[in-house]
Design a protein around this nucleic acid. Sequence first.
DNA 1: AAAAAAC
Length: 458
Amino acid sequence: MSRQPFSSLSLNPALLQAIDVLGFKQMTPIQAATLPPMLEGHDVIGQGPTGSGKTAAYGLGLLSRIDPALSRTQAMVLCPTRELADQVAREIRALARFMPNIKLSILSGGIAKRPQLASLEHDPHIVVGMAGRVLEHLDDGMLKLADLKVLVLDEADRMLGADFEAESRAIVEHAPKARQTLFFSATFPDAVRGLSRQLQKKPKEIVVAGDSGAQVTQTFFEVAPERRIDALAHLLSRHRPESALVFCFTRNDARDVEAQLKKRGFEVLGLHGDIEQRERDEVLVRFANGSARVLVATDVAARGLDIKDLAAVISYELPEDPDQHVHRVGRTGRAGKSGIALHLYTPREHERVRDIEDHLQIRADIEKLPATLLPDRPMPANVVTLCVDGGRRDKLRPGDLLGALTNEVGVVKEAVGKITSFDTRTYFAIEKKLAERVLKRLREAKIKGRKFRVRPID
DNA sequence: AAAAAAC
């Protein structure tokens, strides 16, 4: 199939400019297949491999239908985790960068409602969020959907699965009948296709052949339950991936594995539902920055998260649902990059391997662990993440803060790796050997007459 | 079992 440039579509020049700045060249197959029907106003079911640009596809689709001059909520995206909602919001903001004054609000739980209420006072053009908090705002009458044109269910099979179905449906009830409804995911069980008939109108069904993880080498290892943690340490010590996301079945397991690995000298972060949201956000920033190379998580991290250049996915335990396995593995090998996936299973979980084989029509590569496992070889990180607190939003926006800091403190500029900004905070990744010096300079720096709080978050 | 509103 020949790849086409975005310019072959009748996209708004502001969007084409953003696409150019973001460095997107041609459309990916899922983008090329879903954008034309979306631009014509059709409902769409878009199934495409993990890491193939589905967010940009529906992001461009919904932004194309927004009238910036109309201060009403015209598009809404629902996601299954808070971290994913944040990421989707960042991506849409980046695409909307050259559109005039597009307002986007993130409506997720785990944080105070008050700032969200303020953001809803003048209706945002776009809302990205989680079903629960969105429903609260709808019930309170603070979020109004009378002018909604586009509703997106990201990870649609999850949003319409048993856990979220009722909430998703309740939200759809609040939306106008005349709307465009878009479903996107890498996986669509038949049951969800059935639900589409109730929520969508004559959807165009697009399936881009699922070579999810084509660039990922997968290997399965059988292990006795009592050797599981040793096997994990062995795999880490043996492969020493630049970064590794380790999946556990339960929060308890995730907490245990995190603690055990720490005890053995590994630098590890944890991400799961028992951790406070603020901490979860920081953990993800630190991991993405490379200030720890191992992240132990539950399936909260299984879907959608785009962690740049993630080298390895490791299943400490396999999920029961083979689709969930597809999503986990899809955290690596994104956008044509390569990756490895290593999976541990006990004899009694062998059936899960079979299910994966049947479901994905693959032959699992099963390898034996050596009788003698390798000694622990921890993987120290060579960067540190600094958090710069920019104070109140109305005083200084993240962009200004960043510009001010890099100008003022020259050393930062050369030392900075990745940068992530949230509402009032900016995170810098800095090489460890430079960190102390930079930290000192930043602490002394006054920008626009104000002092900033700077702290390492490691 | 996980996630998720919130308490």
